[in-house]
Design a binder for these strands. Structure first.
Length: 217
DNA sequence: ACATTAAGTGATT
DNA sequence: AATCACTTAATGT
């Protein structure tokens, strides 16, 4: 086993060794490669073809839907231990992505080339479960996202957004501007400012320039 | 000191 | 909840 493979094996141990069978880990270590990203980097854009799927090791990624230049909305976040099964199907079918994936916080991931992941589906039960599970989870998050739009007011949506973000980044202190929040929720900055002020007065958040501290999740 | 960017606010729809 | 128009505050050069 070479150094590169040993490194991947070690990286996988936190979240994946328990769920994947040993043979599968061997294969992942052989064909996968490690990559790192900084906040703001676009992993996949709408309309692009995918050639690899990621296994997130740490950090977070936000999945965004955008309609014809302009209006956009964050659907959900991916975090360590996640993959994006949607990207998986995109790989298999050679279909174009319907989402954009943007790095939210410093992220490390192992990328797997598309040609293997199809085989593994038939070959490894743990891989099958992992993909199906991921799909299920993404669906639930999508429904939550719809619920948010349909049934929640902006105040609740803001709170959920901040809570989710704090959760995936694993910290209460978020470095973010009102404008960025407004973009992610597809509302205006003025509205975010006013709602944050309310939440601040209620003691639920503590907000200063470029920074929001989430006190309650 | 000045320019730029972020945040706060009243009024209107 | 959105938009406008304007103010104030924080930060960079």
């Amino acid at each position: 086993m070479n150094a590169q493979e040993a490194l991947l094996r070690d990286k996988l141990s936190d979240y994946y060794t328990d769920i994947f069978e040993a043979n599968l880990i061997d294969e992942i270590v052989r064909v996968g490669f490690l990559d790192k990203f900084k906040p703001g980097e676009i992993l996949v854009d709408i309309g692009e073809n995918m050639t690899h799927i990621p296994l997130l090791l740490n950090g977070s990624i936000k999945i965004i839907r955008q309609e014809k230049e302009g209006d956009e909305l964050v659907l959900y976040f991916l975090e360590k231990g996640d993959t994006c099964a949607i990207s998986f199907i995109n790989c298999i079918n050679r279909k174009e992505s319907i989402f954009r994936a943007v790095v939210d916080s410093d992220t490390e991931a192992i990328f797997l080339p598309v040609e293997h992941i199809d085989d593994w589906l038939a070959k490894y039960k743990s891989w099958r479960y992992f993909i199906i599970d991921s799909y299920h989870f993404r669906l639930i998050e999508m429904v939550e996202s719809i619920d948010g739009l349909a049934f929640m007011n902006m105040n609740q949506r803001l709170m959920k957004y901040l809570g989710d973000k704090a959760k995936v980044q694993n910290k209460q202190d978020l470095e973010i501007t009102h404008q960025e929040i407004a973009d992610d929720l597809n509302t205006s900055r003025v509205v975010v400012t006013r709602l944050l002020k309310q939440l601040h007065n209620d003691g639920k958040v503590y907000s200063t320039r470029n920074r929001v501290r989430v006190n309650e999740i």
